[in-house]
Structures are given as C-alpha cells and as structure tokens.
C-alpha cells in the first residue's frame, strides 16, 4: 500500500480524516484546557493571598 493509497482511504478520505480530525480537536482541547485553567487559578490565588496578607498587616499596624 502506497502513501497516497493510504491517504485516499479507498475514496472515503474526506469522511475518515475529518472524523479523526474532529477527534483530535475535541479531545485535544478537552485535554489541554485544564492545564491552562489550573495555571490561571494559581495566578489568581497568588494575587488573592498577597492582598489578604497586606490587609492583615494594615490591620495590625
């Protein structure tokens, strides 16, 4: 089987490859998005904790 035969998928190339492409996009995004959201949560919390510390210091002064 040659490469072009393989990619042709017996004439069903459009249907087969768009199925696998959809899987890559959907599952890829679902997999990667929590990495970004965890990073942004950590960033948010760092700012929040710093503000809390500053407020505590002001209160004690």
């Amino acid at each position: 089987m040659s490469a072009s035969e393989f990619f042709n998928m017996g004439g069903y190339a459009v249907f087969v490859w768009s199925s696998y492409g959809t899987a890559l996009v959907l599952l890829g995004w679902t997999f990667i998005s929590p990495i970004f959201s965890k990073k942004s949560i950590i960033k948010e919390l760092k700012i929040k904790y710093r503000q809390q510390e500053r407020q505590q210091q002001e209160n004690t002064e």
């Binding site: 997999f31 929590p34 949560i41 950590i42 760092k46 904790y49």
Partner: peptide, 28 residues
C-alpha cells in the same frame, strides 16, 4: 487522565481558603 487533571485545578479553587492549598499555591 483528563478528569483528574480537571479535578486538581477545581480542588484548588474550591478549597482556596484552606492552609494546605495556600502552601501549594505559594510553592508553585
């Protein structure tokens, strides 16, 4: 893999007022 990764981020958000989350976030 995917559900555990999501769960970990969400735990940090939901438990943000606990001491252990504070420690993890500050060490990150």
């Amino acid at each position: 893999s995917s559900v555990l990764m999501r769960a970990r981020g969400e735990i940090l958000r939901r438990e943000q007022n606990t001491r252990w989350v504070k420690e993890i976030v500050e060490n990150e």
